[in-house]
Simulated assay, not measured.
Amino acid sequence: MSISDGYTSPVNPESFPDDNLLSHLLQKGVPELKRLVDLRKRGWEDDSLDNHFKRRRTVADTVDDKMNVIWFKKMKKAFSELNKAAHFVPRSGTLKFLDLGCSPGGFSSYVLSNNNKDATGIGISLPPVQGGHHFLLEKHFMRRYELIPADILEYNLGPAQTEIGTAEMRPLPYEIGGRDLVILDGHYLRTYLPASSESPNEWDRHRLLISQLIIALRSIKVGGSLVMKLTHPERVQTAQLLFLLDVLSKDLRTFKPRTIHANRGTFYAIAQGVGLGTQSARQAEYLCDLEALWYEITFGGENGRGRFLTRNDMDFIVSQESLVSEYAKRLIELGMDAWIVQGDALYQWFSKKGLV
């Protein structure tokens, strides 16, 4: 796909399936995943679903005030589901949280309204002028909340002492440090407009993923909780991120809300006791490697314009061979809820359409 100046991007590696990991998981006998894979294949083969997804994209790209309110309420309910599953939002005591990609504000609203008068938060969200959603947090909560309108992709997240050759990069706000809870829910918007005059790059969504993780590890306190939205636990890169959260935290569990996107591949990883895991001594090392990766996908590639994540980029976390040979059983445990919920939702949807 070409962008405005005629520069051709490299092929997105996500167009190639992660055959080795997926095949191994299926060979271990996971009927829930096998059922989901079969349902997805049936959906891909039915052309009638194309119009449905086109309409969904149009609605998502043209959110009006009414729809924004609907999503605010749904996100608040979804975060309630997450907290009921893992109990990571305390009802009393000091709670400092950071919400990345916070608009329209449903997640932050739930945290502030959870009967904890001492909870305070900071949210970072893409300004509407750059294609972001409008922020709808209730006015009476704003005295305990700071909204920072900013593009996460414009923060300098490279290794220390590394010279960044662009004036658009800014340092992270100092006040986001020492967070008891960090929420990573930012996702790449098709309406995104960079502050610069250049068109967005196709790999910016990969940069957004790595950027959020770096900000989380820089800002979270030892023993804090991290909630991260991910997609498809059977994918290699997702599995590597799950492994990272698993070894850095005291407890990791996953949950897929039933309120939103039940028939899609998204789910949430909930890591509690970050910095208290079996490999927490390596947390600073992992962070340095992520910062180096951020620099490469931001300024590497053809003409120094950045590039997609590739299959081997996160092997410093865990190799794909180790995922297959040593982590598969744990990965199945972590992926089960996402596979079951999405499978049930797709089956119900396809049944209504007469596809199953």
Score class of each variant (00 low, 15 high):
residue 16 F to H: 11
residue 319 S to E: 10
residue 262 A to M: 11
residue 274 V to T: 01
residue 340 I to Y: 14
residue 244 L to F: 10
residue 233 P to R: 00
residue 35 R to H: 04
residue 52 H to E: 11
residue 7 Y to R: 09
residue 42 R to M: 04
residue 115 N to V: 13
residue 92 S to T: 09
residue 263 N to R: 14
residue 272 Q to I: 14
residue 275 G to W: 09
residue 234 E to P: 11
residue 239 A to G: 05
residue 88 F to A: 04
residue 134 H to I: 08
residue 93 G to I: 12
residue 56 R to T: 01
residue 30 V to R: 02
residue 155 Y to D: 08
residue 124 I to F: 02
residue 284 A to P: 01
residue 284 A to G: 03
residue 167 A to W: 14
residue 265 G to S: 08
residue 313 D to K: 06
residue 263 N to F: 03
residue 235 R to S: 10
residue 311 R to I: 01
residue 61 D to R: 14
residue 324 V to F: 10
residue 93 G to N: 09
residue 191 T to Q: 15
residue 24 H to N: 13
residue 15 S to A: 13
residue 135 F to V: 05
residue 36 L to A: 09
residue 243 F to G: 04
residue 124 I to S: 05
residue 150 A to D: 03
residue 169 M to S: 11
residue 146 E to F: 13
residue 155 Y to G: 06
residue 103 S to G: 10
residue 54 K to P: 00
residue 230 L to E: 01
residue 337 D to E: 15
residue 84 K to G: 10
residue 234 E to W: 04
residue 221 K to A: 14
residue 39 L to C: 02
residue 191 T to E: 13
residue 42 R to T: 04
residue 147 L to Q: 12
residue 263 N to P: 10
residue 243 F to P: 07
residue 67 M to W: 07
residue 316 F to H: 02
residue 322 S to Y: 08
residue 104 P to N: 15
residue 245 L to S: 03
residue 144 R to K: 08
residue 227 V to M: 06
residue 48 S to A: 06
residue 133 H to M: 11
residue 292 A to K: 09
residue 123 G to K: 09
residue 240 Q to C: 05
residue 25 L to H: 00
residue 289 D to K: 06
residue 95 L to I: 10
residue 58 T to M: 13
residue 270 I to C: 05
residue 96 K to R: 11
residue 68 N to K: 07
residue 114 N to L: 12
residue 93 G to P: 08
residue 31 P to V: 03
residue 180 D to F: 09
residue 319 S to W: 07
residue 28 K to Y: 08
residue 228 M to T: 05
residue 252 L to Q: 01
residue 205 R to K: 13
residue 341 V to A: 14
residue 217 L to Y: 00
residue 195 A to Q: 13
residue 187 H to E: 09
residue 106 G to Q: 02
residue 259 T to H: 04
residue 327 Y to I: 12
residue 124 I to D: 12
residue 264 R to T: 02
residue 203 W to K: 10
residue 126 L to E: 14
residue 59 V to D: 09
residue 183 I to D: 02
residue 33 L to K: 00
residue 170 R to L: 05
residue 78 A to E: 08
residue 40 R to C: 02
residue 323 L to I: 01
residue 324 V to S: 14
residue 316 F to W: 05
residue 215 I to C: 03
residue 135 F to G: 12
residue 144 R to V: 06
residue 200 P to E: 15
residue 224 G to Y: 02
residue 31 P to E: 12
residue 198 E to Y: 15
residue 23 S to D: 03
